[in-house]
């Protein structure tokens, strides 16, 4: 139990953090909301920068193969045809994957946005916590 508390304390390091730290915390919150029962979430990313950020998150582990992943974090790759859950990091890609991606975290209108697409969440039988319902949209 002490180990568990120690892990939780580590995860709650100061909110005075850098851009990368904030980004890591945001992905951490998103992935844990998508996979509430998983201890380790396996993530495949097509961006080295995002992979570096994911390394800061203790609850995720980067994988080299899409087949081994619980979720694909996509920043540029189009036309991936797989049943593995997708989450994207730019708006153009979200438009491209609007029928399959569960959501996206990207800049638009001068601010960072998070969106979850309800229809695609339903395909994976995901029910987000109440605190994240404000980010759920019926369509893009």
């Amino acid at each position: 139990m002490k180990k568990l508390l120690f892990i939780l304390m580590l995860a709650s390091i100061s909110l005075f953090a850098s851009q990368a730290n904030y980004e890591a915390k945001i992905y951490n919150a998103i992935f844990n909301a998508l996979f509430p029962a998983k201890r380790t979430i396996y993530v495949w990313s097509d961006s080295k920068q995002k992979s570096d950020i994911l390394r800061q998150i203790s609850a995720t582990q980067s994988v080299d193969s899409k087949e081994d992943a619980d979720i694909l974090l996509l920043s540029k790759t189009k036309n991936i045809d797989t049943k593995t859950m997708k989450f994207v990091t730019n708006y153009q890609l979200l438009k491209h994957y609007k029928k399959s991606a569960v959501g996206g975290f990207y800049w638009k209108k001068g601010r960072p946005n998070i969106i979850f697409l309800k229809k695609n969440l339903d395909k994976y039988h995901i029910s987000l916590p109440q605190s994240m319902q404000e980010y759920v949209e019926d369509e893009l």
């Binding site: 709650s12 951490n28 919150a29 844990n32 909301a33 998070i114 605190s131 994240m132």
Partner: peptide, 9 residues
């Protein structure tokens, strides 16, 4: 994460 990240997203 619900308390730290969910509510504070």
């Amino acid at each position: 994460y619900n308390t730290l990240y969910g509510e504070d997203l």
